[in-house]
Design a protein around this nucleic acid. Structure first.
Lengths: 234, 234
DNA sequence: CGTCCATTTGATCAGGGTCAAGACGAGTGG
DNA sequence: CCACTCGTCTTGACCCTGATCAAATGGACG
């Protein structure tokens, strides 16, 4: 619980242009936690006692519907905030956050937020900028779901994932956490069957390589052509 | 441009628990504008010079895609903020805002936001609460698009509209601004043809009455049954 | 009275969901 | 080290929802 150093968070976007002293004050009130793969960081409808910063790993944010569907809202990468319900006046978390791999997170009690917001206006502004871009992302997804074919949505989803979590390998850009066909289906509003067919077709065309819970994009450029292909409705 | 009184905004959610003096200071820096029906309040990609409060009327917020699609993000009702890009660190508006009927709005220059945020913490917190619920709405729509049939999405859309803009009449709850089949289609990611067929069917069943750009929900309860009907995928 | 736009309705058809079955690979326990 | 099991992935066949194409109807307004 001790020995947290400001070097953990210095350099991250949300802490941009803050003094070392402020970073110390912030980090000093955090506790760090390890979350094992497939374990929740926080859960939908739970009391939002803390907000979090992902230091290492990848977290999947999923909303469950009453009728048993799961829709993946986004993946969180290292350096990103999550569970910031308190900054938006909510008292419960709106979704489940599941560790896609073993993770390390920092956690602050939610009741610190009002103090942080007034004491560190830069931090506050950067946080709301994050919120703004997530709102933007959500609207983009609504638009994709409304106007694009499944093939384009899946292509866009893969491109987004390699942009935010792509790791260069000799074969191409690998998504560096386990990602099943089912996971992709939950991101794009389709079924694992359709995703499987699409990935198989793309593999035949040499656009990607894939295996069990693993996807490598070999030809991002050509995949982008698929994603932007105009065969819309309307 | 003068004669703006705090009574215009007192009592609105976003100005909850603020003093008369603060309301005066805020309203004193606004200018009021009339926007004629079908005219823009602000436009996508434009420099976000101002943020707005809708005093009277209804505004449709629409995103246009490069390939000519239009997706309606939400309708704004009197008392709601809009164009608050500046509060989220954006410099341009993310969407078009079109007056669905003749409107009256208050406008503040965007550069006032940082001052407002620090001077009126209640106003700031309430604004971010609004942002939070819009993020929530956006995610709800993603989930609807991913898991529901068109019929259920259209039913949900109508129910949302009567909840936020329903006016009681002797026939039922009327959506009190012009709303075409095309408008409903743009909210739900379908076509005007499908919407027309659904509304016709519902009219035959006595759930609604409708006409040119006009929808009255006669049996909200039964419509809710349609909206919640479980015939999902997965 | 004529024009324009919103709406209705029918016919067709394909994208992709559903159902079904099997193959593959990883981890486990004997 | 091997057999077994379980979860992921693949692939085929079928069919339904809802998009597309086409055309007619009906108000509203000048």
């Amino acid at each position: 619980m001790a020995n947290l150093d400001r070097s953990l968070i210095a350099g991250l976007d949300v802490f941009e242009s803050m003094t070392a002293a402020d970073l110390d004050r912030i980090v000093g009130q955090a506790r760090s936690m390890r979350i094992a793969r497939d374990q929740p960081v926080f859960e939908q409808e739970q009391d939002a006692h803390s907000f979090f910063l992902l230091l290492d790993g990848h977290v999947r944010v999923v909303k469950s519907t009453p009728d048993g569907h799961e829709v993946t809202v986004r993946y969180i990468s290292p350096g990103e905030l999550m569970g910031i319900a308190s900054a938006l006046g909510r008292t419960t978390y709106p979704a489940n956050a599941i560790a896609a791999v073993d993770c390390v997170v920092l956690a602050w009690p939610s009741q610190l937020w009002p103090t942080f917001a007034t004491s560190f206006p830069n931090f506050s502004a950067n946080t709301y900028k994050t919120v703004g871009s997530r709102l933007q992302d959500a609207h983009t997804r609504v638009i994709e779901m409304a106007t694009e074919q499944v093939e384009q949505r899946v292509a866009h989803a893969l491109l987004k994932l390699i942009k935010q979590s792509g790791r260069k390998t000799d074969e191409g850009l690998m998504i560096d956490f386990p990602l099943s066909r089912q996971d992709i289906a939950e991101m794009t509003g389709t079924t694992l069957h359709t995703v499987s067919r699409l990935l198989s077709a793309w593999e035949d065309q040499g656009l990607i390589k894939s295996g069990r819970q693993r996807v490598v994009v070999v030809e991002p450029h050509k995949l982008l052509v698929v994603a932007e292909c105009r065969t819309p409705k309307g």
